[in-house]
Computed example of a mutant assay.
Amino acid sequence: MAPLRHGLVETAPPRDHGKKRRGRVKEAALAEADALISLPPDALDNILVRLGIRDAVRTSALSRVWRHRWEALPYLDLHFPRLGGDEGAPAGLWSLYGILLRCPGRVRLFHAELDGPYAGRVHDWLFVLSRRGVEILDLSFNDSFPTLPSSVFSCSRLTSLSLFGCAIPLLPAGFVAFPDLKKLTLANVHLEDYGEYQLEEIIRTSPLLEYLVLTDVFIDGEHIREWVIRAPNLRHLTICSENYYGWILKDLTCLNSAVIDWFDNVVHHDFAKFLSGLVQVRKLLVVSFNAPSAMIPKIILCTFHNLKSLKLRMHFYL
Results as ranks from 00 to 15, higher is better:
240 C>V: 02
278 L>K: 04
239 I>R: 10
269 H>A: 10
247 W>Q: 13
251 D>P: 04
260 I>E: 00
246 G>S: 01
279 V>T: 15
276 S>L: 10
250 K>V: 10
266 V>N: 00
252 L>W: 05
275 L>H: 01
274 F>G: 06
247 W>N: 03
230 R>M: 10
271 F>K: 01
253 T>N: 08
251 D>N: 01
265 N>P: 06
282 R>P: 00
274 F>R: 00
278 L>T: 08
268 H>E: 11
258 A>W: 06
264 D>L: 01
264 D>P: 01
248 I>C: 06
245 Y>H: 14
254 C>G: 02
257 S>L: 01
245 Y>P: 05
237 L>I: 15
278 L>W: 01
270 D>F: 04
273 K>A: 10
239 I>L: 12
252 L>V: 05
245 Y>D: 15
247 W>V: 12
284 L>S: 07
261 D>E: 12
246 G>D: 06
284 L>P: 08
276 S>W: 01
275 L>V: 04
283 K>W: 12
230 R>L: 00
249 L>A: 09
266 V>W: 08
230 R>V: 03
254 C>E: 08
260 I>Q: 09
266 V>A: 02
254 C>K: 11
258 A>D: 11
275 L>A: 13
241 S>E: 15
235 R>V: 10
247 W>K: 07
238 T>C: 11
258 A>G: 14
240 C>H: 09
252 L>E: 05
254 C>M: 13
248 I>E: 13
280 Q>S: 13
274 F>D: 02
283 K>R: 07
275 L>I: 05
265 N>A: 00
279 V>N: 07
239 I>H: 14
281 V>T: 13
238 T>D: 14
264 D>Y: 11
255 L>S: 00
251 D>K: 03
243 N>Q: 15
249 L>I: 12
236 H>V: 08
278 L>I: 08
270 D>G: 00
281 V>I: 05
251 D>L: 01
235 R>F: 02
272 A>M: 00
233 N>R: 15
271 F>Y: 03
267 V>P: 00
282 R>L: 00
255 L>Q: 05
237 L>S: 12
236 H>Y: 13
273 K>D: 12
